[in-house]
Design a protein around this nucleic acid. Structure first.
Length: 150
DNA sequence: CGTGTTTGACCTGCGC
DNA sequence: GCGCAGGTCAAACACG
């Protein structure tokens, strides 16, 4: 699983502070119409917490990669896989296996571009990385470029 | 034997 | 109230 050997070429980061107020924050992005469709999907994804404004930050990485599994150094356990109506590719749901770390992440592939993989992170890690992968550093260095955009 | 994946069922929010 | 779509659980299985 660690031989993904990064084919990351371009990435886009979408961030949300909270859903209730910041609506349509990422309407204009570079990339194309597919991005917009994806953004709209996420915007109307779910806002169940009406009485409890649990604003869990969600970060969506749009990555052009050959593989869906982007090992970011954390240990993920797949807990579900559902097919989305708009996309012909199923969406995979992962969860961080670290104790007390309820960080979730979902990976979805775009219908139009099968080489385009969208990784949505939910929550933040509060523990060090377990994986001491050399390849990971190479990938993370690219990811941090977009992470520091916040 | 431990850890993670698979897969169908179940739950919930929402629109009609 | 019902059906759909998205999200999660959990038992069984696979693999080191």
């Amino acid at each position: 699983m660690e031989n993904f050997q990064g084919f990351l070429t371009t990435s886009s980061l979408l961030g949300y502070g909270e859903f209730q107020s910041g609506k349509g924050s990422m309407e204009e992005m570079e990339g194309g119409a597919e991005n917009k469709t994806f953004a709209g999907l996420l915007g109307t994804a779910k806002k169940k917490g009406d009485h409890k404004r649990i604003r869990k930050p969600r970060y969506a990485f749009q990555t052009r990669s050959k593989v869906d599994i982007l090992d970011d150094g954390y240990r993920w356990r797949k807990y579900g896989q559902k097919a989305v109506k708009n996309n012909k590719f199923p969406r995979s749901y992962y969860r961080c296996t670290h104790q007390g770390c309820n960080v979730k992440k979902q990976i979805q592939r775009l219908t139009k571009d099968e080489g385009m993989v969208v990784t949505t992170y939910e929550g933040m890690h509060s523990h060090p990385i377990q994986n001491s992968n050399d390849n990971f550093e190479h990938i993370l260095s690219q990811m941090q470029i977009y992470t520091t955009s916040f």
